[in-house]
Write a protein that binds this DNA or RNA. Structure first.
Lengths: 216, 216
DNA sequence: TAGGCGAGTGAATCACCATTCACTCCATGC
DNA sequence: GCATGGAGTGAATGGTGATTCACTCGCCTA
């Protein structure tokens, strides 16, 4: 007769799955996706390599889950910031600035999850994430355009470009290193301004659109 | 007594090295860096795998050489286009548009050489390439700023962002596919306009700065 | 033309990791 | 208590792909 799952066991299983996910996440945050190796994840989660496979069918599934986890968290933060803004234009600004600030705050993880090419299967999740960010920006652009707050432009094409500009400008290999919090804040503001100008907002700074920079 | 290298031999050796480089380049252009495998390169160059190692100490060296080759060619094209422009602002526009157009014309190769993470050693060459492009753009921005043709901005930070916007907007995974030559031309123009607006050029189109789009 | 250098070869080796599986052991259910 | 389901283990396996090396053979020198 099959055993029933004790309350205790259920909790332990869930905790262990979470531990594996956390281990993978922290490894990705430290050394990029290449550091996410089953042996390393297992070690960090204090279990044997084989045990990982009791929770995730394959490494790809694990990596996918890591990406989805990060994606959900980040998208929620971005939407929250944008929704809290007083108008369409400042929502757009908040959207970009939040994405920029949080990305910069966790450079390595963001890079691993957004930019590093990986196995095809997990790659789909990464694409979803990028797509979500771009879609959100695109939606905010359209909202602003509807109210005549932006000049005519191709939102569908502009959104990915904005994502690229933020990533490359802030966490790409050529991006100037932000030494301290002030420098980081400054970099986020500059990048947001650049993005808004690209979309046709000439005087964002004067209008106070980039004043409120989210933490990270 | 060591043999001297006959004229014929020298030519054959050079030809073979070139063949290997070309094989690697075409493979990268078709399937990205992961397609650049010693066995595949050797096969395409009609030689044995071991022979590759008579010409390149390691795969990394081969990949580095591929990147340098592409980099030199592209940088020359970009500089040529910019230098041929009538003024600083149109030089800047030409610089960006040329980079964009040529990148789009060879999406896969450009992606392989500019964006795909690879082994650390070869990665240095890739960085050099990105750095060169960004530096060129940065220089053109400064030149335009000197003549008061652009508003105040941090050229050092803006240049990488422009590179990112072009890459992501044109050949990134989210970029709209350019179906035909007209669509490609259109996409390059849009992206260039976006970049110029980001830098504070409000009426680039009206001023005809993006009219002349290089081929590819 | 004989002798021998060194380019060319490609099967074997090495390294790196994901994945498997025969086994252990603890908690469950009677 | 005792039999047993199933989580946990980690050494062994397998696949992929770079790199090596003992050997062959064509071309150069004398």
């Amino acid at each position: 007769m099959p055993y029933r799952r004790t309350e205790n066991v259920v909790r332990r299983l869930a905790a262990r799955e979470q531990a594996i996910l956390n281990a993978a996440l922290s490894l990705a945050g430290e050394g990029g996706m290449e550091a996410v190796q089953i042996a390393a994840v297992a070690k960090r989660a204090n279990i044997a390599a084989g045990t990982v496979y009791r929770y995730f069918p394959s490494k790809n599934d694990l990596v996918s889950d890591v990406i989805v986890t990060v994606s959900d968290r980040e998208m929620a933060a971005i939407r929250r910031a944008a929704d809290a803004a007083p108008g369409p234009l400042s929502a757009l600004a908040a959207c970009i600035a939040t994405f920029a600030a949080r990305t910069l705050a966790e450079r390595r993880l963001a890079w691993a999850v957004l930019a590093e090419p990986i196995e095809a299967e997990a790659d789909a999740m990464r694409l979803d994430f990028r797509q979500s960010v771009a879609a959100e920006i695109e939606a905010r652009i359209r909202a602003a355009r509807t109210r005549q707050l932006l000049p005519e432009l191709d939102a569908r094409a502009a959104a990915p470009a904005i994502v690229g500009a933020v990533l490359e400008g802030l966490i790409g290999p050529l991006a100037p290193e932000a030494v301290d919090a002030a420098a980081a804040r400054q970099a986020v503001q500059e990048t947001t301004l650049l993005a808004l100008r690209a979309l046709g907002v000439i005087d964002a700074r004067a209008r106070g659109l980039v004043a409120q920079v989210p933490l990270g």
